[in-house]
């Protein structure tokens, strides 16, 4: 319940923060993951750099076909933003499934992504949305695709001293249908599996399918085999079933108290079917 002693700073300026991170500081975003593990003494950073006061990291804006969300934008801000709801509804839907009211009030999109919990909700949608992460450190900035960003369980492309500053999300095609479907772990509220689907149709055919999966494997991933199977089809129930069955292809499933590997795999298929059905039905 009580964390180890640490030094704390709360810079208001990004540059200043990056400087402190370069000298070994641990970034604190919403704290929804970091603080519990510090309290359980599973993490003991010597210096915590609170990013909560950097106003320049909290925004949602639209620019030339993309939405830009500052890393410190909270789940509630995403969930309730009229801009996100209209321009990128999948992200808003995913945000609304995270944790609970209080967690969504504090948790941030950058913090969630950087933590890379394999059972977190966001990464499925971030994968399906093909977002880009803007990363910054004292030595400069770079942009990384979501697929390159998530490396492994609790492991990302972030280098020491580097943080996410922004998530860049393509504005959704207004005719696209999207859905996030999640099997909830009854104790923690995390995803046993969560599947995000985006479908675009044209002339009665699925022209684009994007499927992001969380909870199943060591990290969130794009189910490309499933996408390929669906693209070019009419998106009938049979087409969806075939695609959903492929969602776990090439993934070694997690196993724990709440779901064995086999069950998780099967549930990934079921929830992929559900997400795809809803997305297909919503696509116009």
């Amino acid at each position: 319940m009580i964390a180890h002693i640490f030094e704390y700073s709360a810079p208001t300026d990004l540059k200043e923060a990056l400087g402190q991170l370069a000298s070994g500081g641990k970034p604190l975003a919403g704290g929804m993951s970091l603080i519990p593990i510090m309290k359980l003494r599973l993490a003991a950073p010597e210096h915590v750099v609170d990013l909560g006061r950097i106003v320049a990291l909290n925004y949602i804006r639209e620019e030339a076909g993309t939405l830009h969300a500052g890393a410190m934008t909270t789940h509630y801000q995403i969930e309730s933003s009229p801009l996100v709801r209209s321009r990128c509804p999948l992200l808003a839907e995913a945000a609304s499934h995270i944790g609970d009211v209080q967690v969504r009030n504090m948790g941030t999109i950058g913090g969630s992504a950087a933590h890379a919990d394999p059972a977190a909700d966001y990464p499925a949608s971030l994968m399906a949305l093909e977002v880009q992460f803007r990363l910054a450190s004292s030595s400069g900035e770079r942009t990384v695709s979501v697929e390159d960003f998530f490396v492994d369980t609790f492991a990302t492309a972030l280098q020491p001293g580097e943080i996410i500053t922004e998530v860049i999300i393509p504005v959704e095609d207004p005719s696209a249908g999207v859905s996030y479907q999640k099997m909830v772990q009854p104790a923690s509220g995390y995803a046993i599996v969560g599947v995000a689907a985006r479908i675009t149709k044209s002339g009665g055919k699925v022209t684009k399918a994007r499927v992001g999966v969380t909870g199943l494997g060591p990290k969130a991933f794009r189910a490309k085999a499933a996408e390929k199977l669906l693209e070019g089809t009419e998106g009938t129930a049979a087409d969806i079933a075939k695609a959903a069955a492929a969602v776990s292809e090439g993934v070694e499933s997690n196993t724990d108290l709440h779901a064995s590997a086999n069950y998780r795999t099967q549930m990934a298929r079921v929830y992929a079917g559900r997400a795809l059905s809803v997305a297909v039905s919503r696509a116009t």
Binding site: Y8, D100, Q102
Partner: peptide
């Protein structure tokens, strides 16, 4: 951060005050 018994409002936002440092 599961039970919510510690919920207070910080600047009008409901938070679990066991998952926030006072300095924040």
């Amino acid at each position: 951060s599961i039970c919510g018994a510690c919920t207070v409002a910080v600047d009008g936002i409901a938070v679990k005050s066991c998952t926030m440092f006072a300095v924040q």
